[in-house]
Amino acid sequence: MTTVTKPERGSWLREHSELGICVLLVVLGVLVLTDALRIPTDFAQRGPVGPKAVPILVGSLLLVVAALLARDVLRGGKGEAEAGEDVDLSAPADWRTVLLLCGAFLANAALIGVVGFPISGAILFWGSAYALGSRNLVRDPLIAAGLSIFTFVMFNNLLGVPLPGGPLMEVF
């Protein structure tokens, strides 16, 4: 990236990966506009402005902003990545961790209805901790199980916020 005389196609795309946001905005804009045009107008409207007007405005603005952002990026503008307490921006993005985290998150969504929150929540916590680099095979699962069961009892029995207990809790 420093002294490349002939930028390859791949590196150009990487340098301008922010254009992906423009693509996202265009997709959103088209989606909002096509959805708005689909809304029928032959029903009794209250007032002169129907349900179409604002979506059409938002959709058009999405396209305009996408174009303006693309111009900004192509002129060398760059969105500043967000800094934070535990964020080290000098290191490249660690996609493996992110994918593992997504996996743990989706596992919870897939399992919560089947095995109940106490188990799926523990899997979520342990999986996330593992993804983030914690490798203590005794402490991690214990904390995960403890936190999950504690949270379940707290919410379900004390705070009156129902969570699915699953087969594990039916034993009691």
Binding site: F117, G121, L163
Partner: peptide, 24 residues
């Protein structure tokens, strides 16, 4: 430990989102 911190954030975020409507 940071792994516990961010695992905990995801954990409670899931509890919160699920509890709104009890809907996956």
């Amino acid at each position: 430990p940071r792994p516990y911190l961010y695992a905990g954030i995801l954990f409670f975020a899931s509890v919160g989102a699920y509890a709104v409507n009890a809907d996956i």
